[in-house]
Design a protein around this nucleic acid. Structure first.
Lengths: 173, 173
DNA sequence: AACAAATACTTAATATGTTAATGAGATTTT
DNA sequence: AAAATCTCATTAACATATTAAGTATTTGTT
């Protein structure tokens, strides 16, 4: 990390007047109770994801693929053909982003799009043989790295983590 | 979610020839053992983060701030003055992105930048009074939402999650 | 002191994230 | 059936993510 900073802001400029000592003590107590910047679950989720992705980035970069592009290829390899909307939900990518990702993957010859015959609004997407080959090349290496990652954590903890994340994912604001 | 898709791709076009039944059985077994798309830790971390952020987005959007801008303000409120590099590491934002974020926050009057006197390369960043006021307005509402989030999970699970995430963050690829 | 190497930040180029608006096609309502 | 409504995908506009390259400043070497 980096050297610990020196000063704090207790954000209490509108406090009532007290004796200086009491005020300082009060502010100190308030500060200790305050949730610290690094105690944020969303931030820790972000950092944890960052660490995990660092295991795979080099391989994907070498293959000329982005994280998101690989996520799309991976999903299509499993589900054969998907609507754009399904793909977006599976991959956790918003529709406007997905449109661009699909365009680029299509122009690289990695996937095909066709319109649904029943509902002309829907777009059906599937991998080309070229992309299936690419998947077979990359998948073992990436699975190996996934193993390197998960082997550093006990099976129990890994399952705990999976369950806790599922619980969070299913919360509703 | 959405209706479960129908077909699967077992990605084994290069297999040796077998009796059809045996082959189908073999592929089925292989498929069952295969790690599924949704079993990915990085993806679940992404989705979990997405769920948690949905608690706060409306408030931030109403205030005209992005997630990243709020992260920067929050860090600066706690550490008073930080170098760009420290801010980047704390907030998990890469330097090139941070440059733009700082530019926009500065032009909105939310923060000040000055060059370090000892090391002219370093940029020191701090909040304006305006931003400190903004923080005091938003912070309670956001903390309230944070409470709504964490109250749906037991304290034990919450601590477990924090520990597991810390463990992951400290892994090295 | 002069030079190479390292550091902090910025710029550039491309891809994606995010919200709002649009357009085309299906559904519902009257 | 025509109008209003809804849905899916795309476009638009801006912010951020990512990698590479560039600039200025500092540090290390000789």
């Amino acid at each position: 990390m980096f050297a610990e900073p020196k000063k704090y802001n207790t954000a209490t400029t509108a406090d009532t007047q007290e004796h200086e000592a009491d005020q300082a003590e009060s502010l100190q107590r308030k500060f200790d109770q305050m949730r610290k910047f690094n105690d944020s679950i969303p931030l820790k989720l972000l950092k944890a994801r960052e660490t995990t992705m660092s295991f795979f980035r080099p391989i994907l970069q070498e293959a000329g693929l982005t994280e998101q592009q690989w996520r799309v290829i991976r999903a299509l390899n499993e589900y054969e053909e998907l609507e754009s909307k399904q793909l977006a939900e599976l991959c956790c990518i918003l529709s406007p982003s997905l449109t661009g990702i699909i365009n680029r993957l299509e122009s690289q010859g990695h996937l095909k799009r066709r319109k649904s015959t029943e509902d002309q609004r829907r777009v059906l997407i599937s991998l080309t043989d070229q992309a299936k080959e690419l998947f077979k090349e990359l998948s073992p290496r990436l699975e190996g790295r996934y193993g390197d990652l998960t082997n550093q954590i006990s099976k129990e903890k890994l399952q705990q983590l999976n369950e806790l994340l599922s619980e969070i994912i299913n919360l509703e604001p």
